[in-house]
Nucleic acid binder design. Structure first.
Length: 591
RNA sequence: GGUCCGGUAGUUCAGCUGGUUAGAACGCCUGCCUGUCACGCAGGAGGUCGCGAGUUCGAAUCUCGUCCGGAUCGCCA
């Protein structure tokens, strides 16, 4: 049984002086001065110092046995501290509680790591004892931010007349996209549910149903390899709206983002956000999620060098590739060794064949392949690159668009190396006009860039048959400081067009009908034009809180092998369970 | 699946050109201490150097294999 607390450990101030109070909490630290014992009592709300002196011998003896992380309750009186013993660092630092009664609810073993902020303990240990990790304030703060943001998001959509609708977690597996997590059906031998990669089809069906505006904060699942910013189960803010175009969706969500950043980080965000077509993002920044907090824009110097003596430049341009550059201001003094190391990194991280550099120093242009280039060519290259005296120009050559992506990676590397990123800035950006599909060399067919329900730009529909790769889509991504926060599109709401897109994607009528027949049928009964978007809530919280890893903003995350080190999942199951599910394990599985 | 980094006390790390009994800090335990808040002081316990094989008179140290963790590429509509 527990004593009813009168206050939390974060709320007593000088105004409570003289009050008899009851506190419950964990022992954070104990400072035993012999006749006097101080304890920092901790709960989610804060820390309050409690004091035991020797006026009550029995109580003092009990206090001597208290240890870190014991869970206790105390009754006592709020005392104003003497001037010289005030702790200005703590909100409760002007008072302490003089204990008159103590109960130990539960003792604690010494934890494997200290429960305090800034510990260097490796993640493996922290994940195994995640319940202890979450006792730490810096993790609790992140979970509280997440809780507050989720609350604000719900209020925001409810205020705008969105309906919060839950969609199935057990659904059918669909082709396209990420690998599904599968769930066997006991009552349907040999059949499987899939966990949703997103509630995409359901939210579109809700539009057909006339729900008009839908949102959901919903778990999604993708069975792909993990990264610091990628977990197998993650949470989306999922949205769909009827009778809208891109601008309507942008407007609502610019307001949402501005509100979140203002109310939770006290950062003013200007709206509307900048918009940039995919092609511009690729050509200027070498990325579909450009970080706009620094310059280093990419220049196309192909025309300057296509007739030069340097064979690589010549042949690259002749084969339809590009020669591109970035100019690093004031770094013309960079030494050969440093440039070689940078070249190595570029090669190993981007697959670029090599890197060429040019320096402008003392009024003279020098280039690593200068003996093949005349002065005029180098002058043109420098001019197109926007270089000035003292600058360094880095050049890559290769097939497009690969060379742009390589340059995009180099651009980020250089920005980090030379500390060019203005980290105090918050640069939201809509990237628009994505290609609808791209050719997959592996599968020898077209793949949707976004998903197969994305509407093509009306003016490009005629290109679907002849040049699918040229068709632009009505998809958009929201990017923040080089991170993809979310993406969406205006959807196809016409069953014939949908069927056509499936066909171009290599899904024949029969398969389309089998896998997506329900959606195309639905469109035959009156489908409103509609579109939507989904944001990664985990990623938003990660960026808002400055966390380095998604794992820090998820209460119970998985490690890189998609395992939970705490409960040791996934685990084996009994033969009997498998039997019920009509499943037998292949003998390639190592037991 | 590839590449890179790492694995030594409860924790974080040092030791790694092979050579006495594997060290430090924090934590933990004991004692002293009435104004601490990173309390202080004195003392103490704590190790299968991830695991296996090899080289060697001798391996934490060198080699190979393997397991584990992380970063990253592929992958992620």
């Amino acid at each position: 049984m527990s004593w009813n607390r009168t206050h939390t450990c974060g709320e007593l101030t000088i105004n409570n002086q003289g009050e008899e109070v009851v506190l419950n909490g964990w022992i954070s630290t104990r400072r035993d001065l012999g006749g006097l014992i101080f304890i920092d009592l901790r709960d989610r709300y804060g820390i309050t110092q409690i004091v035991f002196d020797e006026t009550n011998k029995e109580l003092h003896e009990m206090a001597e046995d208290l240890r870190s992380e014991y869970v206790i309750g105390v009754k006592g009186k709020v005392i104003e501290r003497d001037e010289e013993t005030i702790n200005p660092e703590m909100p409760t630092g002007k008072i302490e509680v003089e204990v008159t009664d103590l109960v130990v609810y539960s003792k604690a073993e010494t934890p494997p790591f200290e429960i305090k902020d800034g510990i260097p303990t490796n993640e493996e240990t922290r994940l195994k004892y995640r319940y202890l990790d979450i006792r730490r304030k810096e993790i609790q703060d992140k979970l509280m931010l997440r809780s507050d943001v989720a609350h604000a998001v719900r209020n925001f959509y409810h205020d705008k007349k969105f309906a919060e609708v839950e969609t199935p977690v057990l659904m059918r597996s669909t082709p396209e996209g990420a690998r599904d997590y599968l769930v066997p059906s006991r009552v349907n031998p040999g059949r499987f549910f899939a966990l949703p990669q997103s509630p995409q089809t359901y939210k579109q069906l809700l539009m057909v149903s006339g729900m008009d505006r839908y949102f959901q904060i919903v778990k999604c699942f993708r069975d792909e390899d993990l990264r610091a910013d990628r977990q197998p189960e993650f949470t989306q803010i999922d949205v769909e709206m009827s009778f809208v175009d891109e601008e309507n969706i942008f407007e609502v969500h610019e307001e949402l983002m501005a509100k979140l950043w203002k109310e939770h980080l006290d950062i003013e965000i200007e709206t509307p956000f900048q918009r940039m077509p995919y092609e511009e993002a690729l050509h200027k920044y070498g990325s579909d999620k450009p970080d706009l907090r620094f310059g280093l824009e990419i220049n196309d110097i192909s025309d300057d060098v296509k007739d030069s003596e340097f064979k690589i430049f010549q042949s690259t341009v002749a084969k339809g590739g590009r020669v591109v550059s970035i100019t690093v201001p004031g770094e013309g003094t960079m030494g050969r060794g440093a440039l070689d190391r940078l070249t190595d990194r570029v090669q190993s991280q981007t697959g670029a064949a090599g890197m060429i550099f040019m320096k402008w120093q003392g009024g003279e242009l020098t280039c690593s392949v200068g003996k093949f280039l005349d002065d005029e060519t180098m002058a043109n290259m420098a001019e197109t690159s926007g270089a000035k005296e003292g600058d360094l120009v880095l050049i890559l050559a290769g097939p497009s668009p690969a060379v742009y992506k390589q340059m995009g990676t180099l651009r980020l590397m250089v920005a980090k190396d030379f500390d060019l990123i203005q980290t105090d800035q918050t640069k939201f950006l809509w990237v628009t006009d994505f290609p609808l599909m791209e050719w997959s060399k592996e599968d020898l067919r077209y793949h949707s860039l976004h998903h197969p329900f994305t509407a093509p730009k009306p003016e490009d529909i005629d290109l679907l048959d002849e040049e699918p790769a040229q068709v632009k889509s009505r998809a958009y991504d929201l990017v923040l400081n080089g991170n993809e926060l979310g993406g969406g599109s205006i959807r196809i709401h016409d069953s014939e067009l949908q069927q056509k897109v499936f066909n171009v994607l290599g899904i024949d009528d029969e398969e389309a009908n089998e896998k997506f027949g329900f959606l195309m049928d639905a469109f035959k009964y009156g489908a409103p034009p509609h579109g939507g978007i989904a944001f990664g809530l985990d990623r938003i919280i990660m960026l808002m809180s400055g966390a380095q890893s998604l794992r820090d903003v998820i209460a119970f995350p998985k490690n890189q092998r998609a395992q939970s080190l705490m409960d040791n999942s996934p685990g084996e199951v009994d033969e009997e369970q498998l039997l019920e599910l009509h499943i037998s394990l292949r003998n390639t599985v190592n037991k």
